[in-house]
Design a protein around this nucleic acid. Sequence first.
RNA 1: GGCCGGGUGGCGAAGUGGCCUAACGCGGAGGUCUGCAAAACCUUUAUUUCGUGGGUUCAAAUCCCACCCCGGCCUCCA
Length: 476
Amino acid sequence: MGRKKEPLVLRVPGQVGIYVCGVTVYDYCHIGHARVMVVFDVVVRYLRASGLHVTYVRNFTDIDDKIIQRASALDLPVQVLTEQFINAFHEDMQALGVARADVEPKATEHLAEMQGMIHTLLEKGLAYPGGGDIFYAVERFPAYGQLSGKNVADLQAGSRVEVDGHKNNPLDFVLWKRAKAGEPQWPSPWGAGRPGWHIECSAMGCKYLGDSFDIHGGGMDLLFPHHENEIAQTEGSTGRPWVRYWLHNGFVNVLNEGGEREKMSKSLGNFFTIRDLLSQYPGEVVRLFILSSHYRSPLDFSQELLEAAGHGMDRLYSALSGAKKRLQSLPDALEVLPEQALLGGWGDDVESFLAAMDDDFNTPQAIAALFEMAKKINRSAVSDAEATEADALGQGVGLLRHLAALLGLLGDDPDHYFHRQAAQDMPSAEIEQLIQKRDAARLARDFQAADAIRQQLLEAGIVLQDSKEGTTWRRG
RNA sequence: GGCCGGGUGGCGAAGUGGCCUAACGCGGAGGUCUGCAAAACCUUUAUUUCGUGGGUUCAAAUCCCACCCCGGCCUCCA
């Protein structure tokens, strides 16, 4: 609330309630959505790993103007449209490794709660009817503007918004909209209609997390007016402080062909859906890309940057791959961080990872620790210290995977990671067969034949790597 | 106009008073390994330098002031 970093002091020790504004389901999700979801997925994972009991609520807005517009444009019932995009959302999130929230409430299933809150606001004189709608009277809530640092007087002066004639004050916002013909509507004490956008988060947050809870998150753009309005509604109706900590992630910009930064938007045509990206890169690469800058900073997106993230991801998996070869198997992520891990050769890295995450989820710095560990793992392969160090290596890999898992990374098997999409133009069996042929040729020192096979595979997008343990391949 | 962020190497990105002669990644250069490669490893890639100009301090990328740029919000938006 102070718009600065503060130590996390929980309402109930050991327990955290967190609410994140989800998506409006009328279209496929883009990178901006991916960012919020990945960021808060990491927040939740980390809080849990820190021993806290977390209740995570992330809503779906399944009724609003844009949904109605889109549904009528496609000539689909609203519910069919929203269900379709809720499913698409879940598919995208799965690909990105974003876990389900504990509760994923839909606005249309919480009409009673919203109406209850509106009723209270009317009773308390914080809301008023006008032209069939119900509005919130902003000037009756003195703290309005506190979260976003806005001054109500300034806002009015600068306002160039076309004001609804029924509003007492241009800043007032709608709680309940009267029904229009042909639109979805619900009965209410104030006539049939549908809820305003902001009220759903207030009502559902209170329902699942209580009248007060710890963390509320969302994109930067929601800070004003959405979250400001949420506070006004909720605290106005309950009379109690609502959310202790607000977390807002920065926006995603797109670098255009001229290298200039611009906001990602549909009108500019610089729009990338998660699906677009997933057709080119594994979800994990998108994830690493997102987490390689701090969640509060703006994030510039471009194909080149995503590709660079892909190379970084390859590097991490290469380390696992090498360790797997030497150990004959890949150690799983350690379930618990052993005390002695902090004393061994990995202690500094573990500590710096955790310190980074403890400092407002500094994922770029945490990732740096991951790369340090990968380097150490690779280095031990080169120095070839043999079996005596197998335990240390195994522990290092286990620790690396444990820490990476807190970011939702390195959960895959390296072979699976490098062999992805392989079946498309050349089945794995065929690749293996060619490798065997090439090995035979190499053994016979017929390098011309061997290189021809390697070239053939390269043209199919397969890169070979020879080593003492044998030849492996990966997608180039 | 009001209010927020931000400007760090070829690129991305940490660092917000001394350990910064600036982490980490991508990219580049040279080398080791290899039949040759690839991957990996080693060395190297900001040395009056952290947008510009002032100031505070024993000490500033980090604090203060001014200025210049960039982005966002103020209307639906993650």
